[in-house]
Design a protein around this nucleic acid. Sequence first.
DNA 1: GCAATACTTAGCCTCATGGCACAGTATTCG
DNA 2: CGAATACTGTGCCATGAGGCTAAGTATTGC
Lengths: 117, 117
Amino acid sequence: MAQYSEALDGTALDGVFAALADPTRREVVRRLGRGPMSVGDLARGFPMTLPSFMKHVRTLEANGLIRTAKSGRVRTCALRRDRLALVDDWLAEQRRAWESRTDRLEQFVTDPEEHQS
Amino acid sequence: MAQYSEALDGTALDGVFAALADPTRREVVRRLGRGPMSVGDLARGFPMTLPSFMKHVRTLEANGLIRTAKSGRVRTCALRRDRLALVDDWLAEQRRAWESRTDRLEQFVTDPEEHQS
DNA sequence: GCAATACTTAGCCTCATGGCACAGTATTCG
DNA sequence: CGAATACTGTGCCATGAGGCTAAGTATTGC
């Protein structure tokens, strides 16, 4: 329950969205969707040095999007779906809001001249 | 159709996620979910100066999340739901990937010691 | 045990972001 | 017309993000 201490306040969304705002990190998430992988294997194919790549891995972990564990000299990464669900939940909340007020104001700004005050 | 020229390459996600990574901007999106609003009205309640706030508005517009139009001295902002759908689509794609490979590897990194190669 | 492997740490650089103040423009109201 | 309103433009500043190189540590294989 209290498994992820940073996960529960609204602020977590900042980190999750920020983490996903980088194409390298989104690609990592995509690859990990196919299953866990070592840092080295993950890094293959990205046009950057390992230290740079590791920063992305840490960003993803710091924001809870992946989980990593080291065994021997290899660090294995795995996706945490529950964390992506945060984004899903936020989107769902917005959708609920739009749907509750129907399309009354739909084309408002399309022709703003007719509406001022 | 070709209404929004920046919207169509994969790179658009960078901007959309980045735009949503800020709590001020997410709140703006949330408020606009209730209907269009002027910049001044939107800005009310945020602890920052108007020029600072305007930067957020422009970021949101630059990344297609809102649409704005000026009428007289008032600029009115409205949400663009289609753009948030980009996020939704990306998430859906990830989910499809997880679901296609069932939970065979589910608890891999939970106990990494038992698995190394 | 020595070498290769797989990260990891440290330090540096550049650019982008988010905030500010202050001054300017354009509408609208009296 | 003059003042108030609602942005808008400019320039500055501090921080953080994302990249690099170079050197270090810990495992594993020969």
